[in-house]
Lab assay of single mutants.
Amino acid sequence: MASDGVVVEIGKVTGSVGTTVEIPVYFRGVPSKGIANCDFVFRYDPNVLEIIGIDPGDIIVDPNPTKSFDTAIYPDRKIIVFLFAEDSGTGAYAITKDGVFAKIRATVKSSAPGYITFDEVGGFADNDLVEQKVSFIDGGVNVGNATPTKGATPTNTATPTK
């Protein structure tokens, strides 16, 4: 695992066909100046998982989280898009600690492993708008004895992609 920078880890949970599971997305290594904004994309298989919603985690402190935390689910493109932009203008609602960034709610549709993997990152910046190093650890849903650990090695991303 990367020793510096922010680590975004997609949790690994267990479920069975027809059940709804909650998959946490963790941030670790949050910089001392916090995270003022970030955007990134995960990939998944809508034939295996139906993403039914995404909720902000406990490290989102904006009293009205829909102003700073936004997501979009595109089953036709097989992606989930995340956007966080601190909304106070003063840094008061920045992410300042490690913990759960988001909770992905999904219904298991198939007995195949439900991988959720890193696809791309736009950027991560602290309260001074300084770009942060970030790496990703894939996860998803274990169905029966299947284990979604494909790509469990962190993917280092030093520069934003478009």
Rank of each mutant, 00 (worst) to 15 (best):
S88A: 06
G89F: 03
T157K: 12
E120W: 01
G140Y: 09
D138K: 13
G122Q: 00
V30Y: 04
D98T: 10
N156D: 09
V108G: 13
N127M: 02
C38K: 01
T66W: 14
A146P: 13
T147A: 12
G29F: 15
G11M: 04
V141F: 14
P154W: 10
K97P: 12
I51Y: 13
E9I: 08
S110V: 11
P154E: 12
N145V: 15
E120A: 04
R105D: 09
V61Y: 09
K78I: 01
I104S: 04
T107Y: 10
G34Q: 05
V108E: 09
D4M: 03
I23D: 02
T19G: 07
K12N: 04
F118W: 14
R43T: 06
F136C: 03
R43G: 11
I104L: 12
E86P: 01
S68G: 11
A125Q: 00
Y44R: 02
F124W: 01
G15E: 13
K33P: 04
T149W: 13
V48W: 15
N156Q: 13
A146Q: 10
A94I: 03
F136S: 11
Y26H: 08
G57N: 15
F136E: 05
F124A: 00
I116Y: 06
C38E: 00
T153Q: 12
I116H: 06
A72C: 01
R43A: 09
T96F: 10
R28H: 07
I80K: 05
A158Q: 13
S16V: 07
P63N: 15
V121D: 15
D138G: 06
A146G: 07
A102S: 14
V30C: 03
I54L: 04
P154Y: 13
D98Y: 10
G123H: 00
F27K: 02
E50P: 07
I60Y: 15
T153F: 15
A94N: 02
Y26T: 07
F84R: 02
V13D: 05
E50N: 11
N127Y: 02
P56N: 05
D76S: 04
K103R: 10
L129H: 02
V134Q: 03
N47D: 11
D45L: 12
T153M: 06
T66N: 06
G151I: 07
I95M: 13
V8N: 15
D62A: 15
A92R: 08
N142D: 09
V41Y: 00
